[in-house]
């Protein structure tokens, strides 16, 4: 009897050691972060030293105000110090020439580089990198914009281009919020240089 049980215990010794090792390696990989281990629960904090301070932080709500907005809207009849984003509306298209002047930026390498970067970031999803109006979003069903190399766009003044970028046109959204003034002018300069170097469509 005794003989038998000891023999039983020692069956597959190598296999057991290997299985143990494999388990250890697996645990090591998971805990070591090599195998991603996703979790929906927030990280555990043992000591929450001064991790969450009671102060206003960007894009975080505030319990101080009833509407829970930390960044406050303007008090009526006041204006922000750095001016209004863009005072004109989509429908003001005809007047823009008398209000906005020519492009204040000269065509330097820097301005063109920046314009290209901004165009490919903010405009290319719809207009496409090559300005033909075949961006990735258009392929998924957005209305196709006209080519910016076509006759119509070449006829627009700098001020008109600036206005369309800032306020939008029909289905095209305005970008006054997302593009600072200088960036919008660099885009205008970039579109102009593309129009001059590419054939009319």
């Amino acid at each position: 009897m005794e003989q038998q049980s000891t023999v039983k215990k020692k069956r597959f010794p190598l296999l057991r050691v290997l299985a143990g090792l494999a388990l250890a390696v697996l645990l090591g990989l998971i805990f070591g972060g090599e195998i991603p281990w996703f979790s929906d629960t927030p990280p555990i904090e043992i000591l929450n030293d001064m991790d969450d301070q009671f102060k206003v932080k960007p894009q975080v709500g505030s319990t101080f105000y009833a509407d829970r907005m930390a960044s406050r809207e303007l008090v009526p009849n006041t204006f922000p110090r750095n001016g209004v984003l863009y005072p004109l509306d989509k429908s003001d298209f005809e007047f823009v020439d008398s209000i906005i002047g020519a492009n204040p930026l000269q065509r330097t390498d820097f301005v063109l580089n920046r314009g290209q970067n901004r165009f490919e970031t903010m405009c290319a999803p719809c207009h496409g990198n090559d300005m033909h109006g075949e961006g990735t979003v258009v392929k998924k069903g957005f209305q196709q914009p006209p080519s910016l190399l076509a006759e119509n766009s070449r006829g627009l003044t700098d001020a008109h281009l600036f206005h369309i970028i800032s306020a939008g046109q029909n289905l095209m959204p305005g970008y006054a919020e997302k593009l600072p003034v200088n960036d919008r002018w660099t885009i205008v300069q970039y579109i102009r240089s593309m129009q001059e170097s590419k054939p009319v469509e």
Partner: peptide, 26 residues
């Protein structure tokens, strides 16, 4: 979409962001 053009590091697109009188930068 990170700007990597010439002199990218020194550029401040927000400088003087007022309509009509953008800083004349070259």
């Amino acid at each position: 979409g990170i700007f990597t053009g010439v002199k990218a590091a020194a550029y401040q697109p927000n400088a003087k962001a007022e309509l009509g009188t953008p800083a004349p930068i070259t």
